[in-house]
Design a protein around this nucleic acid. Structure first.
Length: 509
RNA sequence: GGCGCGCUCGUAUAUCGGUUAGUACUCAAGAUUUUCAUUCUUGCAAGAUGAGUUCGACUCUCAUGCGCGCUACCA
């Protein structure tokens, strides 16, 4: 009874407006829809809601598509994917909307209104809290107050008008939300929403949304909380069309909030605190402004997805690292939280670190290779793999591998002053020179072989291990950093190790 | 202003009437280490407030406060 779609194939949609780059909150909404669809073996539809011609931004649609390709979220049907419920772009569905608007008009559930924006503006100034509804509609210029033939002649003459939904006051409208439970609103506080504009012969969101969801047999509407206030209107629309039996179930997701301070997450927060709020870098075609994206900032898509999944939902236990497939299995709309979630990007950085650790050295090496090439370094994938294995636990991002391993690929051009001050003093040059002579006598530089030999040698000399080794490290690395020293000599090999040590000796002595 | 939604450590959250209120991130301290990091251990830190229901409330109800959202011929 509460789930009137129980027998139908689950179908959900993500339906953005192509008004700019996809916001990270939109990504989360899409993710939840995706998880829900996959879990129920249903369909995930991509619809474009471009009914506002004024806000249309060229390139936005392709940007959104590319974002999902990067994230690995696949649609089953929709714009660019095909399907038998198309077209999936609302601007291509004019006839469908016109037909449905007429249905409401004929049934007396909607009416034509000629009030101009200027007239409405004047009305709002004149009457505080003016609302176009049952209490005011009879004072306005519409088909309710004007003779039918006058309405017809005005329309025929090309006079601009809108079609408004006639809300019957005094009703308790119930929205049965999966996350929030029963939300009841009085229809008296709703206004006669504009459903259709003659100016561009396009519907507004509300009408297009209901008609499309119905025609596309959408079973669950999973969307942001900002839509909750208009959900009663949508319920009323389903009723007006006589579609209440197949009305989708609603689930209104909590909003994504700023990391600090009040309000919902905005692009500004990202700029201010240094993290992107868009999946991909966005070049605004109008202003030329460039906004950073997660992909370009070197975040792994699986880390972004995992982090987003946990913003407003959790599996009910302490598990945090979950693959997309695991999420599909565990996800549950009923377990979504109701309160807005602050966007804690520090945790996202941690997720990125964890995902790098969980990838094989080979996989990370493949990601690191282009960065090395950019630095003018060519090395075999096996070499890179080894380097990665040595330092990957230190980084949060793939690009940080460079700062932590450049010395493996090129001899130090300079020596860190602090490290020098601490380790290159007194007899450091002397012991290092001696160590070089000893190494000269060694053929096998594999770490496992060389280490005990060097340690024995140091012991036989009676030198303090730390002093000798750290001075040696500085000659190889250029600073007091990096992994275990014999892992480094192993990587560098006999020749390169000795060359670096000798060079440092000549430069620093 | 109206309507709606929300409120557990700084953050994300667990708890579905009975717990020393758990976990993770962040931060701090200690241990480990021939460097830097990693790692490990420990620590800091929470039920907005006030009533009510109940043997018992973080959990249910109401009020207050605060926050957020919506209130367009935008979505």
């Amino acid at each position: 009874m509460s789930d009137n779609s129980g027998n139908r194939r689950v179908r959900v949609r993500f339906a953005p407006s192509p008004t700019g780059p996809l916001h990270i909150g939109g990504v989360r909404t899409a993710l939840y829809n995706y998880l829900f669809a996959r879990q129920h073996g249903g369909d995930f539809i991509f619809r474009i809601e471009d009914t506002d011609t004024n806000r249309f931004v060229p390139g936005a649609e392709e940007y959104i598509l590319e974002s999902f390709r990067w994230l690995g979220l696949k649609f089953d049907e929709g714009v660019s994917f095909g399907g038998s419920y198309g077209p999936y772009r609302q601007s291509e569905r004019r006839d469908i909307y016109r037909k449905h608007v007429d249905m409401l008009l004929d049934a007396g559930k909607a009416y034509i209104a000629f009030d101009t924006p200027a007239e409405l503006e004047a009305k709002r100034n004149e009457i505080p809290n003016f609302q176009y509804d049952a209490t005011t509609r009879m004072q306005m210029r519409n088909s309710l107050t004007m003779p039918a033939d006058e309405v017809r002649s005005l329309v025929d003459a090309g006079e601009q008008y809108v079609v408004r939904f006639m809300i019957e006051p005094g009703r308790e409208v119930v929205v049965d939300d999966i996350i929030r439970g029963r939300v009841v609103v009085s229809s008296s506080i709703l206004d006669d929403k504009v459903l259709f504009k003659s100016a561009d012969m396009l519907p507004t969101y509300h009408l297009a949304n209901i008609v499309d969801d119905h025609l596309m047999e959408v079973t669950h509407v999973i969307r942001g909380e900002e839509w909750l206030p208009s959900a009663p209107l949508h319920v009323l629309l389903y009723e007006a069309f006589g579609w209440q039996d197949t009305m989708p179930r609603f689930a209104h997701l909590p909003l994504l909030l700023k990391p600090e301070g009040n309000g919902k997450l905005s692009k500004r927060d990202g700029d201010r605190l240094g993290f992107p709020v868009f999946p991909l870098e966005w070049h605004d075609p109008k202003s030329g402004e460039i906004s950073s994206g997660y992909r370009e900032k070197d975040y792994l898509p699986e880390a972004v997805l995992n982090f987003l999944a946990l913003l407003g939902w959790n599996p009910g236990n302490d598990q945090e690292i979950m693959s997309l497939d695991e999420l599909v299995g565990l996800f549950n709309l009923e377990k979504c939280s109701k309160a807005g979630a602050r966007f804690n990007y520090q945790k996202l950085v941690w997720f990125n670190h964890e995902y790098i650790l969980r990838k094989t050295d080979r996989e990370v090496a493949e990601l690191f290779r282009p960065i090395l090439e950019e630095k003018g370094i060519t090395a075999s994938i096996e070499r890179i793999e080894t380097a990665v294995s040595l330092v990957k636990s230190r980084v949060n991002f793939v690009h940080e591998l460079w700062d932590n391993s450049y010395y493996l690929f090129q001899a130090p051009a300079e020596y860190d002053e602090k490290s020098l001050k601490k380790w290159w003093k007194e007899d450091a040059p002397h012991t290092t020179a001696e160590l070089c002579d000893f190494l000269e006598s060694q053929d096998d530089f594999s770490g496992a072989v060389l280490e005990p030999k060097v340690m024995d040698w140091i012991a036989s000399k009676g030198y303090p291990v730390g002093k000798v080794m750290n001075a040696f490290r500085v000659t190889l690395v250029g600073a007091a950093m990096g992994p275990q020293i014999f892992a480094i000599t192993d990587f560098l090999g006999r020749e390169e190790t000795l060359r670096r040590a000798r060079h440092a000796l000549s430069v620093l002595s």
